[in-house]
């Protein structure tokens, strides 16, 4: 029997209680003190509803992009040898390493009317800076690594004999991917997408620089919570933050279910 069980578990629980549980409990208590009717009035106000539409819509668009882009990157990193592969592999983590405020001003610079991308997009009528599209771009950038890093290890661990068996039985490359590879990576792909979606819902730093932040048009939910604080409307801020917290917990449960599905799948293949 190793020593230190009481000490390490005690320290861990104390830390989690003070640093994680206490603030979240305080937030929920503040919300509860508001009463059901007032809570609904705050979180169901037209301005709040508009922020949910903007945030969820942009997060969905960003997630769809990342599910396609992430799958492509994971696939080429695992299956092909090409110049620059190792650099690409390292670069995938850039959005996690780069502070969000830095990403925010960089993306705004790229997509502004005189920016490298904006100068080509604006004549085509595509306005990215100060629009919902810009919000989606910022969300997409900050959540790039999720899908790549969940799908990549599953692809690496796949038994190549499964695909060879399918090919030897006359399956085309497309059939091999659709019937053999895709079912194996599906839970990881969906889990990565859910993580990217959750991150996009909560993202703040990268978005506020590019969004324009107009109420009802380009205002995200996190920003509304922030604005309520600046107006000293603490109950309003608590209610909106509580909605975000509950959405985050729901997604966390979803991700855990997907990961359990993934593990069950792996256990079946010897």
């Amino acid at each position: 029997m190793l020593p230190g069980f009481g000490l390490t578990l005690g320290c861990t629980l104390l830390f989690l209680a003070l640093v994680v549980a206490l603030p979240l409990a305080a937030l929920l208590m503040k919300s509860a003190a508001l009463g059901w009717a007032d809570f609904l009035a705050v979180v169901g106000s037209p301005r709040a509803l508009a922020t949910y539409r903007v945030t969820v819509g942009a997060a969905l668009a960003a997630t769809l992009f990342n599910m396609a882009f992430g799958l492509l990157i994971a696939w080429i990193l695992v299956r092909y040898e090409f110049p620059g592969r190792r650099a690409l592999d390292a670069l995938v983590d850039l959005p996690f390493a780069l502070p969000t405020a830095v990403a925010g001003i960089a993306l705004t610079g790229l997509f502004a009317g005189n920016g490298w991308f904006g100068q080509f997009l604006e004549p085509l009528g595509i306005k990215v800076a100060h629009s919902v599209t810009g919000i989606a771009v910022a969300m997409a950038f900050t959540s790039v690594p999720f899908v790549v890093r969940t799908v990549q290890p599953v692809l690496e661990d796949m038994d190549p004999e499964l695909e060879e068996a399918a090919r030897s039985l006359g399956a085309t490359e497309r059939q091999v991917f659709a019937r053999v590879v895709f079912p194996v990576i599906l839970p990881a792909w969906l889990a990565g997408g859910s993580l990217a979606f959750a991150r996009s819902l909560g993202e703040f730093g990268a978005i506020i620089f590019i969004a324009g932040n107009l109420p009802f048009r380009t205002e995200i939910t996190a920003l509304l919570a922030f604005i309520r604080l600046e107006e000293f409307d603490y109950s309003g801020a608590a209610a909106i933050a509580t909605v975000m917290l509950l959405a985050a917990f729901l997604l966390l449960v979803l991700v855990n279910l997907l990961q359990a599905w993934q593990l069950r799948y792996l256990d079946k293949t010897p």
Binding site: P23, A26, L27, A222, L223, M244, A248
Partner: peptide
Amino acid sequence: SVSPVVAGVAYLFV
């Protein structure tokens, strides 16, 4: 999983 803004708001209430 918690948005950084939510974390900041939560600390304010402690």
